[in-house]
Amino acid sequence: MQNQRRVILINPRFQGRVALLFAAVILLGGAVLAFMIYREAREALWDASVRGHFQAGLTPYRIVEEILIRHLAVLVAGILLASFLLFFLLMRSIGAGIQRLVDVLRLSGEGDLSTPTRAPGPGEIASFGEQLDGIRARTLTLIDEIRSEAGSLRNEALPPEAFRQRWEELKTKVGRLAP
């Protein structure tokens, strides 16, 4: 069994933003339903007081029961539906961003080190994409240097000492190709 991560709040901006989105859905759903329950229940209580035929053991609950149950059911269904949709969109967005990073890394392995990543999705994924572009650009610069040095070494008629010195420098560069 692998060890569990101790720190849970790793990226407060990313994790907090998503938590706020879900909280906003709940807050909005709660506020709308609270207002509707208030409006209808007040009307029902008012109507009951006007009607006048009070049964023995009457409670306000019996008057507002249907309103409460109906609206609470709508509240649960609405919040869950909106949250599920939000979660689906979030996962889709994260998945698309990660998929783009994976595709770019695969292409990089095949030799494409210059196509920009431009990962979709949350800013954190885009930011890692830019970091990845930095790695790829650095690698390509080094490869260009090696290619250029190999070409000039091959074509220039250098004296043996100078050739040997630049050959050694080229070996050092090759050694830096992947840390």
Binding site: R92, G95, Q99
Partner: peptide, 8 residues
């Protein structure tokens, strides 16, 4: 591929 299907 389809957004995130393989990655996730």
């Amino acid at each position: 591929t389809a957004p995130g299907r393989a990655a996730m």
